[in-house]
Design a protein around this nucleic acid. Structure first.
Ligand SMILES: [Mn+2]
Ligand SMILES: [Mn+2]
Ligand SMILES: [Zn+2]
Ligand SMILES: [Zn+2]
Lengths: 147, 147
DNA sequence: TTTGTATTAGGAATAATTCCTAACAACCGA
DNA sequence: TCGGTTGTTAGGAATTATTCCTAATACAAA
């Protein structure tokens, strides 16, 4: 899991020098936390986690850093409803299942879709940059304790 | 296109009497506008359109009505990023392409996915209520006029 | 019609995200 | 190693989509 961060960190380092960005402590620690997170955290959640390592960090910095990471292709926002944006440090092609009850988000792969070819009406209308499946449902935990 | 509304209207009428809801002028007109819209309008957009028919309608009523329609299964929110929620009066299973530049949203069907079977890890984790593909890209119109 | 109650209009409140700016700290070259 | 340049941050204010509050309204059952 730390190896995973190292790889991303080197990527960030390279992109920073390329684009004239600075490799700050804040960016490093947000990346570390995002790389190890498996729950697609919100900015607020990430903020409280990173605060353990960088007590003086501000919420705005977390938002700004996530924006920067998305521009650099190091992070993505998961397209789910809900008032809080959910972020993903894994930018490899994969899909998401979200529980509409508790908001939990899980990854899954579906090769038949990822490797399939989009209908021509889609590729004809736009230059595709990302394709993903969003499954909504109610998870087992919420199923048991329904009010 | 009006036939389409009639069908939905009858459905609303039935659901209202079932659930003790009232068939108000506002609900009727929001449904009419949503049924004829093909652009997945935001609440604000829908508000300005419905205002032509119901000048005194409030934005809150549009939001509340859309919430009611979603509860009743007459409308859905399209899971796209952006500050404005985008709504869909078509609840039949279909997918969406969104231009990350101008925000345009188009429908498409992809039977290989819709009729395909989800991986067991998904159906095992939750009770699935909805599956859809979200394609992001840059549309032809935006491609030409890029800044 | 009458009456009970769900619904609305309008404005206030909430809350996620962004903006503003002085202080700070990477990073480059000497 | 040491300044100087300038991108970045912390903190709080501002913005804005959406929701809440409440008196007035208008469905719908009888
Ligand atoms: Mn993911
Ligand atoms: Mn649609
Ligand atoms: Zn759940
Ligand atoms: Zn476009």
């Amino acid at each position: 899991m730390e190896q995973h961060f190292q790889k991303k960190f080197n990527h960030l380092k390279e992109l920073c020098s390329q684009k004239g960005l600075r490799l700050t402590h804040q960016r490093t620690e947000v990346l570390r936390e995002l790389a190890s997170a498996k729950d697609h955290p919100s900015a607020e959640t990430l903020y409280s986690r990173v605060k353990g390592r960088v007590p003086a960090i501000s919420l705005d910095t977390v938002y700004r850093t996530l924006g920067t990471f998305m521009d650099l292709g190091l992070a993505a926002k998961v397209p789910v409803d809900g008032d809080l944006g959910r972020f993903d440090g894994d930018v490899s092609p994969h899909h998401h299942v979200v529980c509409v009850c508790c908001g939990a988000i899980r990854d899954f792969i579906w090769d038949e879709v990822s490797c399939g070819e989009l209908p021509a009406e889609v590729t004809d209308w736009c230059h595709v940059t990302d394709t993903q499946v969003i499954v909504r449902g109610i998870c087992r935990d919420c199923k048991g304790s329904d009010s």
